[in-house]
Amino acid sequence: MRNLQRGQAIVEFAIVLPLFLLLVFAIFFIGMMMVDYLTLSSLARSSARDAAVIRVEDYKKYKYQEIRSKYENNKLPIDIFEWNPKTSKEDFKITYEKNSQNVKVEMKAALNTDGYALAKVVDNLAGSKMKKIKINVTYNMYSENKLE
């Protein structure tokens, strides 16, 4: 009778282990995605603050180019998402809205399925639907100076 119970425990373990590992893997992967999201959000907030306090003379001369160059060299720590502000102007935009006198910072990043091994594994498991996962961070801040 004891041998049958031992066999039952091994079968239960074999059924539960893959589900448990999948759950742990999913928690780990989502945590890594959140690190990249929080880093991008922090960069957006910092660049919006710098853009909100820019002097009128500097705005007319550079149009936020100094701020862009200051923050575009930053990298995402885990690199689950691909953020290339130097090659793509859509990944990092700073605009001034005349009507509301707000500075708007937009940052976008797509899932890096080409370069990161863990992202490739998840992409293969999900059936290539992971490419649709993107981060879009928009940060608005009231400008201290009327720029236009």
Results as ranks from 00 to 15, higher is better:
residue 104 K to A: 04
residue 32 M to Y: 07
residue 56 V to W: 02
residue 26 A to C: 09
residue 78 I to R: 10
residue 70 K to Y: 05
residue 59 Y to A: 05
residue 78 I to H: 06
residue 25 F to W: 06
residue 110 A to C: 08
residue 34 M to D: 07
residue 41 S to I: 03
residue 28 F to R: 01
residue 69 S to L: 08
residue 143 S to D: 05
residue 123 D to C: 10
residue 69 S to A: 07
residue 56 V to T: 10
residue 126 A to H: 06
residue 57 E to S: 10
residue 43 L to T: 09
residue 99 N to R: 09
residue 117 A to V: 12
residue 75 K to A: 13
residue 142 Y to E: 10
residue 69 S to H: 06
residue 64 Y to E: 01
residue 74 N to M: 10
residue 139 Y to H: 08
residue 122 V to A: 14
residue 88 S to L: 13
residue 95 T to V: 13
residue 142 Y to A: 14
residue 118 L to V: 15
residue 112 N to W: 00
residue 34 M to N: 10
residue 40 L to S: 08
residue 89 K to G: 06
residue 65 Q to R: 09
residue 52 A to T: 10
residue 26 A to D: 03
residue 113 T to D: 03
residue 132 K to V: 08
residue 109 A to V: 08
residue 135 I to W: 09
residue 93 K to S: 13
residue 83 W to H: 12
residue 76 L to V: 14
residue 40 L to A: 10
residue 71 Y to A: 02
residue 132 K to R: 14
residue 121 V to M: 15
residue 122 V to G: 03
residue 132 K to C: 06
residue 31 G to C: 00
residue 84 N to F: 07
residue 114 D to Y: 02
residue 99 N to E: 15
residue 89 K to N: 14
residue 68 R to T: 08
residue 29 F to P: 02
residue 121 V to E: 14
residue 96 Y to G: 09
residue 107 M to V: 07
residue 74 N to S: 08
residue 112 N to L: 06
residue 112 N to H: 05
residue 51 A to Q: 04
residue 87 T to K: 14
residue 58 D to F: 00
residue 122 V to E: 03
residue 38 L to T: 11
residue 124 N to V: 11
residue 84 N to K: 15
residue 106 E to C: 04
residue 35 V to L: 11
residue 78 I to C: 05
residue 57 E to Q: 07
residue 135 I to D: 01
residue 89 K to F: 04
residue 142 Y to S: 03
residue 136 N to A: 11
residue 70 K to S: 09
residue 25 F to G: 09
residue 58 D to I: 01
residue 59 Y to V: 04
residue 73 N to C: 02
residue 72 E to V: 01
residue 77 P to G: 01
residue 98 K to W: 03
residue 101 Q to T: 12
residue 136 N to I: 13
residue 53 V to Q: 10
residue 110 A to F: 06
residue 70 K to V: 05
residue 121 V to A: 15
residue 42 S to V: 00
residue 131 K to S: 15
residue 63 K to M: 07
residue 93 K to E: 15
residue 127 G to F: 10
residue 69 S to W: 06
residue 42 S to G: 12
residue 105 V to A: 03
residue 26 A to W: 00
residue 118 L to A: 14
residue 46 S to W: 01
residue 135 I to V: 09
residue 114 D to I: 05
residue 30 I to Q: 08
residue 31 G to W: 04
residue 65 Q to P: 00
residue 47 S to W: 00
residue 77 P to Q: 07
residue 95 T to P: 01
residue 26 A to F: 13
residue 83 W to F: 14
residue 82 E to F: 12
residue 57 E to A: 11
residue 62 Y to W: 11
residue 63 K to L: 09
residue 100 S to E: 14
residue 121 V to L: 15
residue 43 L to K: 05
residue 122 V to M: 12
residue 131 K to R: 14
residue 127 G to A: 08
residue 129 K to Y: 10
residue 117 A to H: 08
residue 130 M to T: 15
residue 39 T to I: 02
residue 87 T to Y: 06
residue 123 D to M: 07
residue 33 M to Y: 05
residue 45 R to W: 02
residue 92 F to M: 05
residue 41 S to R: 13
